[in-house]
Write a protein that binds this DNA or RNA. Structure first.
Lengths: 125, 125
DNA sequence: AATGTACAACGAATAGATTAGTTATGCAAC
DNA sequence: GTTGCATAACTAATCTATTCGTTGTACATT
């Protein structure tokens, strides 16, 4: 999967949020100072070339929507990150952040609960 | 903290690995086709401007070393990622990956063990 | 049909990243 | 000291990303 540039990622974040939209609607979700209409228009067409979005045509106007989900994209990119920074070990990554206290006790307890459920599910298979 | 571009990140990965090195040494850690000496030289000077590396001068030759650790950088960037893709919740991120089976049962068990230790440490404080 | 409006398509202009050639300087060998 | 080599600094060339002005076409209004 291709990487998203800064500007492309911002547009994707809006599209993931609103599910689908015309350029004008995407634009509305940008903070001031808003970029020009044409800027967004160009970026969505690039995103379309890269295969991240597609569109439905209503006459001459296009309604764009993501074809790569936020989940798919984040999955690919966290995997790359874990590979580059934690020699491909989730365990190393999570334990580093647990130790660095970027994860609260409450969050850790929640994570453990979910993992126990997943471990059980796997083992009964 | 500034972001690293693709090329810059590759040089940083080498420097984090070798701890310190002259341009020539950094170059040796690149796969074929190796970039030109000057390319690496330019990139380390950019990294120096951005505050990621510094150097010790031996006469006219420079030995470069990271001033931002891999841990610091990965911490900043995973935090950004978690913020952008999981509304700043580690729990959401980890449980997403647990469910998506990017984490093996063995890894989950290890993570739980570490978290239990951390939770205990926090609570006795 | 003529005029106006909205929007996609195109393309130009700028900015930022990447790559590498050229130059200049310090040092070593003679 | 002169020559040659290594390397840092500078700079040019190319490439990629970003931004937005301009153009042309479809559609609506009159």
């Amino acid at each position: 999967m291709r990487e998203l540039t800064r500007a492309e990622e911002e547009v994707m974040q809006v599209l993931w949020k609103i599910k689908k939209g015309f350029v004008k609607e995407i634009l509305e979700h940008f903070d001031e100072p808003k970029p020009a209409y044409n800027t967004i228009s160009t970026i969505v067409r690039i995103l379309q070339d890269k295969g991240f979005v597609s569109h439905k045509a209503y006459g001459r106007t296009h309604e764009y929507f993501p074809v790569v989900s936020k989940n798919e994209y984040s999955k690919t990119h966290l995997n790359t990150f874990v590979n580059d920074y934690f020699s491909n070990s989730f365990e190393k990554m999570v334990s580093f952040f647990a130790k660095e206290k970027s994860i609260s006790v409450k969050e850790m307890e929640e994570i453990m609960k979910i993992m126990e459920g997943e471990v059980k599910k796997q083992k009964t298979k």
